[in-house]
Simulated assay, not measured.
Amino acid sequence: MSALGAIHVGNKQLGLDEDTARDLYQRVTGKRSLREMNDRELQLIVTEHRRQGFKPAEKGLQGPFAKKLQALWIAAWNLGIVGDRTDAAMLSFIKRQTGIEHTRFLLDAEDAAKAIDALKAWMTREAGVDWSQSVSTASWLRSSGAKIALAQWQVLSVLRAVDPNGFRKFIFDKAKPLDQMTDRDWPAVMNTLGDLIRKEKA
């Protein structure tokens, strides 16, 4: 977002009407009009807005591997092994694994694999997610979401929060029969099970 755009958003977020905003401009830069200001002066206004509590919207994650990494990060949070589900926490993890600051700079598949594989290994080690797949794997269990949800159920079973044999019935009650579940159906199930895990661990 440009400084000019940030100022307009900041005025709105802080509830400043036109006269109040112009008074702020005058106080900070000596000028009452944004059009008269140079880049440095516009930045001074943005800084003053932030001092008053303006919080610019975070830029969304970008890059070819961003969605996959975010989905895995939220899955790890729903498994109870990640304590902070924010993008900032995920970016810190990615930087530790790859040395790369942000998903928008993560363009090489080999670099992305370092973070993806590390996350998957962590989920296997801490929560028992079985990523393996063979010809004999049931069709519903070929989805990553199903593998994660099944691991969540096992975590809850260990915590004695659910019947170890009740997974199929739970899925049927919450969504649909297991063999009719699609990749789109699993996130809602994982979020529900994640809430249960966090409550049990709290």
Rank of each mutant, 00 (worst) to 15 (best):
A118L: 05
D19N: 12
K176P: 00
L193S: 07
A115Y: 03
K55T: 14
A175L: 11
N38D: 15
A76G: 15
N191F: 09
A188H: 06
I197M: 11
F170K: 08
M190R: 15
V9Q: 14
E110H: 15
P164A: 10
W122I: 00
S92A: 15
L24S: 08
L91M: 11
M1H: 14
G30R: 05
S134I: 01
R104F: 13
R160H: 09
T182G: 06
A89D: 13
W140H: 13
G53H: 02
G63I: 02
T137Q: 04
V189R: 08
S144V: 08
L4V: 12
K199Q: 14
A202C: 05
L156Y: 03
N191R: 12
F167E: 03
E126P: 01
D39R: 08
R160T: 08
H49F: 06
R51I: 05
Q152Y: 02
T86L: 07
R50S: 01
E48D: 10
L4N: 09
R104T: 12
A21D: 07
G99K: 08
L34K: 15
L106Q: 08
K31E: 14
F65K: 04
Y25G: 05
E48L: 01
E48N: 04
K147A: 10
L119D: 08
F54R: 01
G5Q: 15
W77D: 10
W153Y: 04
A138E: 14
K67P: 01
A146L: 07
E101A: 15
G15P: 05
D117R: 02
L69F: 09
I94T: 06
L119P: 02
I45A: 08
G80T: 09
K176A: 06
N165K: 14
Q13Y: 00
M1W: 07
K12G: 00
L44N: 09
A109F: 07
R184D: 12
M37E: 05
K55E: 14
Q43K: 11
L42G: 03
D111F: 01
A88H: 09
R85V: 10
A138W: 00
A76V: 02
R168L: 04
P64G: 01
